[in-house]
Simulated assay, not measured.
Amino acid sequence: MLYQHTIGIIGAGQVGMAAANALFQQRIANELILVDLDRNRAEGEAMDLMHAQGYVGRRRVRAGDYADLAQAQIVIVTAGVGQRPGEDRLSLLNRNAAVFRQIAEQLDRHAPEAILIIASNPVDVLTYVMQTLSKRPHEQVIGTGTMLDTTRLRTLLAEHYMVDPRSVHALILGEHGDSEIAVWSHANIGGTPICGNSILGKPYDPAQMDQILTQVRRAAEEIIARKGYTNWAIGLVLAHLVRTIQEDQNSVLPISVRLAGEYGIEDVCLSIPVAVGLRGAGGRVPIPLNDAERQALTTSAETLKRCLHSLDL
């Protein structure tokens, strides 16, 4: 049987399987191939999903090796090593860079045409690492970036104003991390700017907006403190990103790409608005930033560059 939309997932952990579950339920992929060092786990996860075909139609999910990814159009990378007790961030980064070197070699050998979506953290640094290590064009290696942070911001704003999150238009740019920025100068609900306006009887409250941004930045920390990991929301982000690529939507999304002078920033991966389609990262869609936002984005880039300069690539 010929499967058209084959998607590979490297890493059958919590994030990888949340992505697989979302792709399976939304009928986005005809075939999912799970690659994990623990082959038994990957096989068990594949069997578990396969048993639900009665509700989604014929879909193939199987465990595989890198060689099985030859026909994959898209490969999602969620693999990485966890932080050891007492280990500093730089040591963790270098160990993950070593893991990515092995993954890049295998993917270049077996799936050289596939678009790679990086979801492993720190996603901006590891997107840059994969772009550096892989032979494929940079446009074919993208990170989920601040897509998750952006939906968190829209969700919290929607709760504050009691509206549908899909009516909220707001962006998080920069690092997927503490230095990320909210573009308040363009945030709006149904076309009405949030800054300075009363919306549905709620006056603009800068302190409340700052509190919401803090909640966005601390969201992962709060979730991890309660359940040990985050997975469901990023799984949906990954499914949305895969669909966007497959359907060549050219949707403008805040994904992590390597900058080449945009906003005066070069040679670092972070999130800016990018048109996403069949070729991966397409044209950049520059959004005018005010002086404070531009400086904050520059600071975010400098934070990431310090990490990159310390890596052994």
Rank of each mutant, 00 (worst) to 15 (best):
D248W: 01
I118T: 00
I194K: 01
P165F: 03
D68L: 10
V35C: 08
A79G: 09
D312G: 04
H110P: 09
L37A: 13
N94Y: 03
G277W: 06
I223S: 08
H110W: 13
G235W: 02
P137T: 03
G80S: 09
Q295L: 15
M47E: 14
T132R: 11
L93S: 09
I142K: 05
M50N: 05
Q208M: 15
A292T: 15
A79W: 01
R101W: 02
E222V: 13
T127M: 06
V285P: 09
Q295T: 14
F100Q: 07
M47W: 14
L270R: 06
I9S: 00
V274Q: 07
R58D: 15
A281W: 05
A220T: 15
L156C: 10
G145E: 09
A70D: 08
G57T: 06
L308G: 05
N250R: 14
A187P: 04
F24V: 04
G86W: 05
H5M: 14
Q295A: 15
S198G: 10
V274K: 06
H240M: 11
I224M: 12
S91D: 15
P85M: 07
G235L: 03
V75F: 03
A296G: 11
D65F: 12
A72N: 00
R59G: 04
P165V: 05
L213F: 04
H240Q: 11
D178T: 14
R27M: 11
L253Q: 06
A281S: 12
F24C: 03
D108M: 00
I194M: 00
R218D: 14
N96V: 01
Q73V: 08
T132S: 10
S251M: 12
L259S: 01
A42T: 06
A219W: 07
A225Y: 01
E139D: 13
P203K: 10
M147Q: 10
A63T: 08
A19E: 04
S167K: 13
A296D: 10
R89Y: 12
L2A: 13
A281F: 06
G44I: 11
V61F: 05
I255Q: 01
G145T: 09
P112M: 05
E45F: 08
D267E: 14
G8Y: 00
M1F: 12
V81L: 14
R306Y: 09
N30L: 11
N188M: 12
V276F: 02
A42G: 07
Y229L: 11
M209Q: 09
T144N: 12
I74G: 01
V183C: 13
Q131H: 00
L304A: 02
H309F: 12
V276T: 02
G228D: 03
G264C: 04
A292M: 10
T146G: 10
L270H: 03
I223Q: 06
N21R: 14
G190W: 10
A67M: 12
L116S: 01
G196W: 05
Y263G: 05
L69E: 02
I255S: 09
A29H: 01
S256Q: 01
R58A: 13
S134V: 07
